[in-house]
């Protein structure tokens, strides 16, 4: 093969979770819809959460989610791995165990070789295997742009569901992966990222949140979400809204890609970051010492980001230590839940 290597990111307009529909648009489209009512639907659309949960018996519930997006890295196999890790993440964020998955694929068969499709799906399968999840089928359509993801089903005990909505004043917030993937992948698209940071961001995005989820299950966790397209502060806003609590984030404690800070200062920021800021910026108050590039980073849409865990204050250090011991190296306490001002995020 003497062909130029495929540069997947040059074939699409949006990248990864940065391609998500702007959050305000989604709300406008969905508000006021007549949603089905079912007493067994424990977590549904009416409160946006990471995944839906449906009770089957008193001690078994099904967790369902779907996620797909255009490539944010150039290598088809790595794109497949990242898409799978990202799709499975919603199940882990709910405290569930993923069991089955179905591929969701849009493929430009006229412009890309079928070997690319095969590599993408192989990457996805590799991560499913690592997670102990079986592929049961899928659906593929022809489309001008490649998109890949999975619909995933898992199981959970109905009493052990972790939603975004249960913050308790005093809780510490623990984040398990560095933020900045949207900015770094924008730099990759722009040809500015070197091999080292490309490898690091790819590895982190393809890392399952499984170890993080299994570790947190041993602690007193009140709420959890995973950080994806709405960025750290967008997802945090979903946790804090109507919680009656406030949140204080220690900007210096948030793990991040140092290169992303430089690229943010240069304006290599995905449009999704600006959408997130427009939509959720009103919840957030930045201290005078937080530079704009850090603010941009905290609204940066993440692909396959980490879990954001609200844990009982006294257990925070032990949780971080356990996470690090289980290979979740970036885990850090990034802030705390406060008694107020209610529904506000203060970043200092």
């Amino acid at each position: 093969m003497t062909d130029e290597p495929i540069r997947l990111t040059s074939t699409v307009k949006g990248a990864g979770c940065a391609a998500k529909l702007a959050p305000g648009d989604l709300d406008r489209a969905l508000c006021g819809l007549d949603l089905p009512v079912d007493p067994n639907l424990l977590v549904g659309l009416e409160r946006a959460d990471d995944a839906g949960v449906y009770r089957i018996t008193d001690d078994l519930a099904m967790v369902q989610t779907v996620d797909f997006f255009p490539p944010m890295v150039d290598d088809p196999y790595q794109f497949g791995r990242i898409a799978a890790a990202n799709a499975l993440s919603d199940i882990y964020a709910m405290g569930g165990t993923p069991r089955t998955a179905m591929n969701v694929v849009a493929f430009p068969a006229k412009t890309l070789d079928l070997s690319v499709l095969r590599a993408v799906i192989e990457g996805g399968l590799a991560v499913l295997r690592e997670a102990g999840v079986v592929l049961v089928g899928g659906h593929t359509i022809e489309d001008p742009e490649l998109k890949y993801g999975l619909s995933v089903t898992g199981f959970i005990h109905p009493d052990r569901i972790l939603t975004k909505r249960n913050l308790k004043a005093g809780d510490r917030l623990v984040l398990t992966k560095p933020v900045g993937t949207g900015i770094v992948t924008t730099a990759i698209r722009g040809g500015l990222a070197d091999a080292a940071v490309t490898e690091r961001v790819t590895r982190n995005m393809a890392t399952l949140n499984r170890a993080a989820a299994e570790t947190m299950a041993k602690f007193t966790v009140h709420a959890c979400t995973d950080i994806t397209g709405f960025g750290l502060l967008g997802h945090l806003a979903e946790m804090v809204v109507d919680s009656g609590c406030g949140v204080r984030i220690d900007a210096a404690a948030v793990p991040c890609y140092p290169e992303a800070l430089q690229w943010a200062a240069m304006g290599l920021i995905p449009a999704g970051a600006y959408n997130n800021r427009d939509f959720r910026g009103s919840f957030v108050e930045f201290g005078a010492g937080v530079p704009r590039r850090l603010q941009d980073l905290f609204f940066d849409p993440q692909t396959s980001g980490g879990l954001l865990i609200a844990v009982a204050a006294g257990e925070a250090e032990a949780l971080v230590a356990a996470l690090r011991a289980n290979g979740v190296a970036a885990a850090a306490v990034v802030g705390e839940v406060t008694a107020g001002p209610a529904d506000r995020i203060v970043v200092e």
């Binding site: 560095p178 080292a196 991040c256 140092p258 970036a330």
Partner: peptide, 12 residues
């Protein structure tokens, strides 16, 4: 401090 490096790039 790999993940908390704030300035410059990682080298070898």
């Amino acid at each position: 401090v790999l993940e908390t490096m704030q300035v410059g790039t990682v080298t070898n």
